[in-house]
Each structure stands twice: as structure tokens, then as C-alpha cells.
Amino acid sequence: MTPRDASDDSSRWSDLDRPPLNAAALRRGLVRDGGLWSEVDLVQRTGSTNSDLVARAAQGRAAEGAVLVAEEQTSGRGRLDRQWTAPARSGLFFSVLLNPAEVPVARWGWLPLLTGVAVATGLSRAAGVDTALKWPNDLLVTVGGEERKAGGILAERAGDDGVVVGVGINVTLREQELPVPQAGSLALAGAVTTDRDPLLRAVLRSLEDWYGRWRAAGGDPAVSGLQETYAAGCATLGRTVRAELPGERSVVGEAVAVDGDGRLVLATDEGVQEPVGAGDIVHVRPA
């Protein structure tokens, strides 16, 4: 599917609770000399901003710091090939291109966790909503005393030296629009603002800050403060969880730590500490 420029949508004011983003204003607020963000491109509708930006990088049409934002995604993807869809202008759907060449590739696995910390930090400041992270990269908010997923992150390699990180956040999604009962949005969580412009700016500025710290530390999660901050905001730690692993294997245990490789460490009833690097995590009981 070919992306269309956001200005092409003649019905963009059809939902006054969901005004369009302003590409020129975003560029003025985010692109600066010496900063990370090199360009901000806004399209009205596309299949997946991640797929688009990976393709642009492969064609040499995107440099580090490129940001691609869509008002609507028709084929948004999450972890484990799950689909992510939402009404137009109801959320923030964007991808960024990063080239952490000075960081050992073995530490690049921290990028989705870093993005989770940045998103949670930015939204907490700008939207006034308490957020938490479900390992490895789901954003949780509280709606009616219940934890619900309001966002997710997906990182993909782009060539030999790049990583595209995609973020999807439900902002104004209404109860009747939720794809599943476990979903939520910033609006349902009582956000003080649902204006997507300052929310996006806050998230990208937070991401620039955390990425800079991590890169300056050579990707070391302890030296950069990333490991400690992620653990402090991780709702998975301290809970009994079930890890659904590749090969139809599952492990149940208490999530006790996030190790230096970004893996979730489970303490099982057999007295074994097992690190989990991939798989689906189910929270079995509340903290």
C-alpha cells in the first residue's frame, strides 16, 4: 500500500475529538542541529510504518533519526506477528530509524526495552497517567482498577547497521472501540490531555534522551541507568508468570529480575532461575 500525505484527507475533521497532527509543527519542534531527529514524515494512511521505514532504509532513503508517523495503520504489527489496528487519529503510530554503530550488536536487544522506558516516561509527564511496562515491551495503564494494554513496541533490523523501532499507543480509543476487553487507552485511564501533538513530542524527546545515555555508555544497561529504571517501572517483576516459549514449552515462576541482556529471570518451584529471552508472558497473579 502506498502511503498518502496527511493533507490529502478531505474528511480529516470528521471527528472533532481527533484532530490531525501538524507535520510542519512537529518538524519545527523536533528537528534541530545536533539533535537525534533528522526528519519527521507524516502520512495519512499506510499498512505499517515499520515496514515502510525498513524499506526506505534498505533503499538508502532514510538516515538515522528518521521518524515516520501515520494517522492510521491498516496492517500494524506487534510481537509474535499479532495485528494492531485502531481508528484513524485515535492513537500515535510511528517508527524511528536508529543506527547505534558504536554499541556492540549483542546489546541492541535493549532497544525495545529502552523505548518502553522512554514512552512510559514521556507519557507520564505529558499525559499525567501512571504507566507500567509488561516485559518486554507492552505499555500498561490502569482503567477502573484494572491493568490494560495501551501500547506496544516492535523492533526490527534494517540492514546491517540499523534498527527500526515502531510504537503504537492508544490515545482516545473509546470503550466500544476496544479490539479486546484487555485493551485500554490514555483517555480511558484519565489522561489530563489527549492532544497527540505534545504527547508525540514528549515521547520522542524522552526517547532521544534515553538513547543518548545508552549510546554514550556503549550500550551498557547498568552504566546508563536503563536496567535499573526499567526494573523500577516493570509490572511483571514480583509476579508469578507463565512464559509461553518457542517449541510449545512453558515455564511458570516468579519474575525476579531483568538481567544484563534484557532477559526476564524466572525463579521456578524447582529452585531454578531460568532466563527468558523470547516468548509470551502471562501475568498469573497480581503483585
Rank of each mutant, 00 (worst) to 15 (best):
D41T: 12
G233A: 07
D280A: 14
F94G: 02
T193N: 08
S10M: 10
A118Y: 06
A88Y: 03
I153S: 11
A183Q: 02
L178P: 15
V256T: 10
D81T: 00
Q273T: 11
T74C: 15
A267N: 12
P19Y: 03
W110K: 05
T131Y: 06
G76F: 01
A106S: 11
R89F: 09
P286V: 01
A202H: 00
K149T: 01
W110C: 08
V164L: 09
P100A: 01
M1R: 02
D220R: 06
V165G: 14
R27C: 12
D261G: 11
S48D: 05
E270G: 05
A235F: 05
G218S: 12
V67C: 15
I169T: 04
R18K: 10
D41K: 11
V167C: 12
Q273N: 13
T236L: 08
G65F: 02
Q73L: 13
L266K: 05
R201L: 05
G271I: 02
W135T: 01
A24H: 14
G109K: 00
A25I: 10
A183T: 03
R79K: 12
D15G: 02
R174A: 14
V192I: 07
A120T: 08
L30G: 13
E102H: 09
R28K: 08
T2N: 06
T115Y: 06
G35E: 01
P19F: 04
L226K: 11
R77N: 08
W37N: 03
W135N: 01
I153L: 13
G168T: 06
V67P: 15
W13Y: 02
T268P: 10
L53W: 10
A126F: 09
D17Y: 02
L186N: 00
G279P: 12
R263P: 05
V241W: 04
V252C: 07
K134E: 03
V163W: 15
N99Y: 12
G166P: 14
